[in-house]
């Protein structure tokens, strides 16, 4: 039961964060790229204010998987790096925190692009 509730929280929070994005797509002229930028920057701001981590602690994947989660990771990494290294940490912390995700996207993107061919939309 405990496990079910944990997954339900992830589903709920993740779903709501995505639904907000859909509202933006349907009701504003914002393009997908701009919406993603808004999400990641919002994540940095909320993470910086300490408001996002509690959500991650509560909903796990539901908060860490959306792009706001990545913004939060950037903020967290920056905060730790500044505490350790002073001003230089402002530069090194963000990327370090999110390095795995970015490197994965680049590397797997590259691999898949090499291995496959683009196909016409079969619709």
């Amino acid at each position: 039961m405990e496990l079910f509730w944990e997954y339900a929280k992830a589903f709920l929070v993740g779903g709501v964060i995505c639904a907000i994005g859909q509202v933006l797509i349907d009701y504003t002229k914002l393009t997908p790229a701009r919406i993603l930028v808004i999400y990641v920057v919002t994540g940095v701001i909320l993470g910086g204010l300490g408001l996002y981590q509690p959500l991650v602690d509560w909903a796990g994947g539901g908060a860490s998987i959306p792009l706001t989660g990545w913004g939060n990771t950037i903020a967290k990494g920056t905060r730790e790096a500044v505490a350790e290294k002073g001003i230089f940490g402002a530069l090194s912390g963000g990327l370090t925190g999110s390095a795995a995700g970015v490197a994965a996207a680049i590397f797997f993107g590259f691999l898949i692009a090499v291995a496959f061919k683009p196909k016409n939309k079969e619709e």
């Binding site: 992830a10 589903f11 709920l12 779903g15 349907d26 539901g62 860490s64 998987i65």
Partner: peptide
């Protein structure tokens, strides 16, 4: 207009499912 009555619930469901999958991996 965009079919929001269909889009928003679907975004909720599919987005929720992907995040839940991520949670399962965690």
């Amino acid at each position: 207009p965009s079919k929001s009555a269909r889009n928003i619930p679907l975004a909720f469901l599919i987005g929720g499912a992907i995040c839940t999958l991520g949670h399962a991996f965690i």
